[in-house]
Amino acid sequence: MDMPIYYTRAEYIETDTGNKVSRRATIAGPQNIILGGKTIISSGAIIRGDLRRTGPGHAVVISLGRYCLIGEGCVMRPPYKTYRGNFNYYPMKIGDHVHVGANTIVEAATIGNHVEIGKNCVIGKFTIIKDCAKIADNTVIPPNTVVPALALFAGSPGKHSVRAVNEDMKVTFAGQYVEDLPESTQEMAEAYTKQYYTRFQPLPNER
């Protein structure tokens, strides 16, 4: 197994379904957030469950699946628009095995299963990301984009080869389609997210 990622026990709260939530994360409106289990929310993350849809009854604002990771300093907030003259925030749904890199801003409507989002990305309002897609680091996905299944989205126009994208990670903008990912992405993502969760453990002297 790879090296464990240690954290101090005092910093994380562990729920009985195995979610690990940092005390230094800002969780607004926790009653409107659903965590699937074995999900990690890192320090400095901001999750806005308070921006709920108006109307009677219980409203789920953000739902996260199993084995998700919300990186450090991430902001997850539901998207908003006016529909038939009424302003509203709309719920955000995130599937299983989704990793979101550090300092990424997510305002998507739906994110499928096995999705990997890089660091420093901006995912625009009402974006739909299908299963097994990947968003490279520093990508800006414009609002209302649909990212198809098994697609890699990254950088500025004219940088089609993966090599160019990888070398140019520093300034990539206006995310667009780069290439298809292999069919094994689902298994890879599943294995990786599960392994990440097992690697993420409290310091041995505190156990």
């Binding site: 409106g29 469950g49 308070d50 908003y80 628009k81 006016t82 302003f87 925030y89």
Partner: peptide, 19 residues
């Protein structure tokens, strides 16, 4: 402008309930 105004109205109503 209308969206901005409605957004602000919504937040003025909702934010104090949770924060």
């Amino acid at each position: 402008a209308d969206l901005r105004r409605k957004h602000a109205d919504y937040l003025r109503e909702m934010l104090p309930k949770f924060n």
